[in-house]
Design a binder for these strands. Structure first.
Lengths: 139, 139
DNA sequence: ATGACTGCAAAGGGTTTGCATTGAA
DNA sequence: TTCAATGCAAACCCTTTGCAGTCAT
């Protein structure tokens, strides 16, 4: 007899523990400067030379979905990944493109500042500051 | 990535008034739904079929630099252009990707909420809300 | 006459996807 | 045994660039 599976219910596949997945997570957790997928790929490749880019991308996606890492989408640049997975804000250097954490309390209530959302259901927000990082100011 | 800021004075070339430029500006000003470069390209092509994508991109760049249109960079998607060129905030629909203006006062003082910028010189910020737009809520 | 601007095609970057195979459960 | 995950290559999307010719100034 067929198992009764709910049509509506979203069935998420069971994730498996592969070495590749573990290594990707480990890489993100050891790289504290908001690594790009390319950075992660290079780091993992040092230990596991045969890993493919696709696998890194897929695992970063899985880990971000599970909330084990934070994906920081950057407009006009590669996505960054953050081992610090609590919501927080970032700043991007206009010159070198580096991403920095911003020391500012997370405003989970920011939506209340919206006067009229015109029926749009706001569920989250990101703030990206931009400017010049300490290193680039010296140049 | 890095916008090369010249130490020496940056001499910007004299801009010329081409039909292509005028048509691109006209298109952005007539399309009020945050058009992508592709949208602008299509709109201009209706009047001027021989225009190339490269010309549209280059002109959107020039117009954005001159402040005649606002470029809204979208993480993980095509850039949008806005005829309303005062700084303001946006919301992106998680389902259809559409960009909406958010009715919330611009916080030019937001930088003051930063506790410690660790030497980073903050010069600007963007806020992107995300959620579900009215149309997608109906589906 | 100058050089900003154009169209075209090719290249670039970041990311995703199709497919046959492998391997964790 | 199953089907999630892998490696590879090709495809994808958006954007930029090199080039030779054009046109606004």
């Amino acid at each position: 007899m067929a198992t009764v599976t709910n049509q509506v219910e979203e069935r998420k596949p069971v994730t498996r523990n592969t070495i590749q997945r573990a290594l990707v997570l480990e890489a993100v957790q050891s790289l504290h400067e908001h690594p790009t997928s390319a950075d992660v790929y290079e780091a993992v490749r040092a230990k596991h030379p045969n890993i493919s880019r696709a696998t890194v991308y897929r695992n970063l996606g899985v880990l971000a979905d599970k909330g084990e890492v934070l994906r920081v989408e950057v407009a006009g640049g590669a996505d960054r990944y953050d081992f610090f997975n609590e919501p927080h804000y970032h700043a991007r250097c206009r010159q070198c493109g580096m991403i920095f954490d911003v020391d500012m309390p997370y405003r989970s209530d920011l939506t209340e500042d919206v006067i009229d959302s015109h029926g749009f259901k706001i569920e989250g927000h990101q703030i990206m500051f931009d400017g010049v990082c300490p290193d680039c100011q010296k140049k």
